[in-house]
Structures are given as C-alpha cells and as structure tokens.
Amino acid sequence: MEGRQYVFRRRARPAPDEVVAVIDHLRGRFGVEPVCRVLNLCPGTYYGRKRRPPSARAQRDAVLIEQIKEVHQANYGVYGSRRVHRQLRRQGVPVARCTVERLMREHGLEGVRRGSHRRTTTPDETAPRPPDLVNRRFVADRPDRLWLADITYVRTWEGWVYVAFVLDAFSRRIVGWQLADHLRTDLPLDAWRWRCGNAAETDGRRPAA
C-alpha cells in the first residue's frame, strides 16, 4: 500500500461505499487508522459510514443485482448489459441501462461478444525454422504418407478451449486430435502421439517424422 493514487483510478473520485469496501478489505492487515491515513480520510468518517444504515440506492442495488444475476444465469451467461436490460424491462422492472451496466461491471458479469478474436500465434522472427520437407505440396498418393497439423480455438461457456488436430493429406480426414485450455507445446504433441498410437495399433504404419 504505497499511496492513494495506487488504490483508486487517478483523477477519479471514488464513491463512499467503494472507500469503505477498500478499508474493510485492508483493515485486517494494516489496521483502520493507517489505511485511512493513506486515503486521506478521517477514521471517524469511516466508522460513521459503517454505523449508518444502507442508503436507498444501496438497498435498491442489492435487489437489482439479484434480478440481473437471475436473467444472466437463465440465459447461460451470454447476455450482456443491453440484453439483460431489455429482459428486465420486459419483466416490468424499471431500471436504467446505465445502472445495469454499472452493477454488472461491479460484480464481474459480462456477456459473450460476437466476433471476438483470439490470437494463437506470435511468431518469433529470430527462432530457427524447420525445413519444408514437402515443398508446400500438401498431397499424398495413399493414406498415412503425409500428416498435416494445425491448432484452432473455440469459445465455450467456460472460456477459451484450444484444439490441435492431425489431418491425413490423402483422405482429408482428421486422424488425431486433442483439447486443452492452454497453448503449450504439449497440446499438438499429444495430438501427434494420439495418432501415432492409433496407427501403430491398426497397421503399424506412420509417416516419418
């Protein structure tokens, strides 16, 4: 805890409830008075705020956030503030869209964004590159002569999932694949090993590495 400017956004005047929440979070480690000193706040103001009953806005927010969570969960977490607001209005809940946006942001609720892009490759221009053994000719005259590999990604309700797969150049069939929540080297290697194991069990053939 080095200073007030590192606790709240610069040039932003925090709401009283936000200040109280920060002090509540830090008081067990630093004590109330030292935290108030850093925040340039009188400890009496903090204690007075704690004794004060919740404001009408706080009580209203407590009711609204439960309604927002209910709509958000009922729609599998894909609704953003615009759709949540629209659904609440359909249910007869009088609430402004900016209020829905604020409460969803404060409670970490967000919807699925269309067209979002996930970068999977960051090339290193200085790293050595393996030779092109097929001269960019991705064709084969029979199965298991040439395998191709690639990685793609899928957004699910639980987050991003990465898929590595091995494609047979002759049949154009996916002959090996693996799922993971990371992009480490183990992912494509596991897909490769999966196919090698299946090929060895069937007819003992596999392309030379």
Rank of each mutant, 00 (worst) to 15 (best):
R57Q: 14
Y47P: 08
I65G: 02
D132N: 14
R102K: 09
V154Y: 07
R129N: 02
V38I: 15
Q73R: 08
Q59H: 03
Y79A: 02
C196H: 13
R155I: 01
Q5G: 09
V32S: 07
D61N: 15
N198Q: 15
V112P: 00
N40C: 07
A127D: 11
R155D: 06
P54I: 05
I23Y: 07
E70A: 14
R113W: 08
D132H: 04
A149F: 05
V71S: 01
S55V: 11
R184E: 14
L148A: 04
N135T: 11
T156L: 08
M104G: 03
V100I: 12
W147A: 04
C196M: 12
T45V: 12
G80A: 12
R27N: 09
G3D: 10
F165V: 08
R27Q: 13
P130N: 06
R51P: 07
P188H: 07
D150G: 09
D141P: 12
C196V: 14
T202W: 14
E110I: 05
P207A: 06
G204T: 07
Y6L: 01
R51I: 01
Y47E: 07
D17P: 00
W157C: 03
R11D: 14
T126F: 07
A164K: 01
R60E: 11
M1G: 12
A127C: 12
Q178T: 06
D141S: 14
W160M: 09
L189I: 13
P130I: 02
F30I: 08
D24S: 10
R145E: 11
R118N: 08
Y79C: 03
W192K: 05
Q67C: 05
S81Y: 13
L133C: 12
I23N: 03
P128A: 04
D144K: 01
P34K: 07
W160L: 06
V134L: 14
D203M: 09
S55Q: 11
R10C: 05
G77D: 05
R142P: 04
Q91H: 13
T122M: 11
T121A: 13
T45H: 14
F30H: 12
R145T: 10
R184L: 09
R60I: 09
V19E: 03
E33K: 04
R89K: 13
D186K: 06
R82Q: 11
G197Y: 11
